[in-house]
C-alpha cells in the first residue's frame, strides 16, 4: 500500500503526547489566569471542542483508508481515548468549576436541559468504549462482538455534535460545520466499497 513512512513510524505514545498538549495548555492558562475575563467558559468550551475534534478524527480513520488510502488505523485507539479524556475533563470542569457540585442544579440540568441530557448520553455511550479499548477486551468480546459494541461511537459523536448545536444562541457557523462534518463522515460509511476492504469496515 502506498503510504508515507511517517504514518507508520510514529509511535502511538507520540499521538497521546501531542493530543494532550491543548489540555495542558488550557489548564496551565486557566490556573495562571490567562484565559481572559471568563476563564471557566474558555476552559469548559475548549475541552468540549477538543473532545469533539478527536472524536471526529477517530471517525475519519476509516474513510481516509478507504478513499485516500491513508492508513491511520494504528492510531485510532489513541484518538478515541484522547477524545474520551477530553470528555471526562470537560465533564469534571462542568461538575466542579461550573456547577460547583450543586447537585440539585446538576440533576435538573441533566433532566431538563436537552443539551446537557444529550451530552450526558454521549458520555455514557463512550464509557464502555473507553473501558474496552484494549487487547484483552477484544479477545474477551470476540472481534465481531467488540466491533459491534464500538459502533456506539457513531451515535455518541452525533450526540456530541448536536449537544454543541443545542447550546448556542442564534446560528453561529462552528457547531453547524462540526455537525456537517460528522454527518459526512457517517454518511460515507454507507457507500459500498468498490473493492472489499473489510478490515476497515
Amino acid at each position: 500500500m502506498a503510504q508515507s513512512k511517517l504514518w507508520t513510524a510514529t509511535p502511538e505514545w507520540a499521538v497521546y503526547a501531542v493530543g494532550l498538549v491543548p489540555a495542558v495548555d488550557l489548564f496551565v492558562r486557566a490556573f495562571s489566569n490567562a484565559l481572559g475575563a471568563d476563564p471557566l467558559r474558555v476552559l469548559e468550551n475548549g475541552l468540549g471542542e477538543w473532545a469533539l475534534r478527536f472524536l471526529i478524527a477517530g471517525l475519519a480513520v476509516t474513510p481516509l483508508l478507504r478513499f485516500a488510502r491513508i492508513n491511520l488505523v494504528k492510531y485510532r485507539r489513541a484518538l478515541g481515548l484522547i477524545a474520551f479524556i477530553y470528555v471526562v475533563l470537560h465533564l469534571l470542569t462542568y461538575l466542579a468549576l461550573d456547577k460547583q457540585f450543586f447537585w440539585g442544579e446538576i440533576g435538573k440540568d441533566i433532566i431538563k436541559r436537552p443539551y446537557i441530557t444529550i451530552g450526558m448520553v454521549a458520555f455514557l455511550m463512550l464509557v464502555p468504549l473507553a473501558v474496552t479499548s484494549n487487547r484483552y477486551s477484544i479477545r474477551k468480546l470476540g472481534s465481531a462482538g467488540w466491533r459491534k459494541l464500538h459502533r456506539l461511537v457513531y451515535p455518541a459523536v452525533l450526540a456530541g455534535a448536536i449537544h454543541y448545536l443545542l447550546l448556542v444562541k442564534a446560528w453561529p457557523p462552528e457547531p453547524i460545520i462540526y455537525l456537517l462534518i460528522v454527518l459526512v463522515l457517517l454518511g460515507v460509511r454507507r457507500i459500498k466499497p468498490a473493492r472489499c476492504v473489510r478490515a476497515a469496515a
Binding site: 486557566a30 490556573f31 489566569n33 484565559l35 475575563a37 471568563d38 476563564p39 471557566l40 476552559l43 468549576l97 461550573d98 450543586f102 442544579e105 435538573k108 440540568d109 436541559r113 436537552p114 443539551y115 443545542l166 447550546l167
Partner: peptide
Amino acid sequence: RWSQASERRIGGGL
C-alpha cells in the same frame, strides 16, 4: 435550555 437561578460573576477567576 439553561437555568437562570444563578449566575457567574465575571472577574472572579476560575
